[in-house]
Amino acid sequence: MSFRYFRPLIGHPFKGVLFTAKFLAFAHLCLEYGYSTAPAAGPSMLPTFDILGDWVLVSKRHRYGRDVSVGDLVAYSIPINEDLGVKRVLGLPGDYVMIDTPESGSEAMIQVPQGHCWIVGDNLTASRDSRLFGPVPLALIRGKVIAKIKPFAEFKWIENPLKRPDHQ
């Protein structure tokens, strides 16, 4: 490595700007199609995530609900506002799910429509989820939560808790 590799850049501010733009675009590509992080705030996922300060690692390979299965945690765009949410998938297209909380007394069920999924929080009493805004289009799913990364001391991989009976 010698100075001649720097020479085209020094004295050409435009090239520096261009390089920065290309680098930022590449970083953005990695965050959009590879892995990214998201905050898991609020009481809706309480036993799994704390109310404040927890961050999760999101795999964007599962964007638009690709290879997502029942029991997975997903990061999704909340259909009725501008925010991002983290919830658990309870039903995929064709599944029958309960519309209301079991304690409510209602036992009405709904079949999740084509291209949608049913999403609920782990803390049913303090969660605004599909029980409020109905089935969520798979197109709004940003990715699957694969690990809790913050606080660092509590790092853990997140696995689907549902297991086949014959795997025990």
């Binding site: 490595m1 010698s2 590799y5 720097f6 850049l9 020094i10 501010p13 090239k15 520096g16 390089f19 920065t20 680098f23």
Partner: peptide
């Protein structure tokens, strides 16, 4: 800027 040019130079050199 300097950092960027150093990275670029290193990548090209490599």
């Amino acid at each position: 800027m300097a950092f960027a040019s150093r990275l670029w130079g290193r990548a090209r050199a490599r």
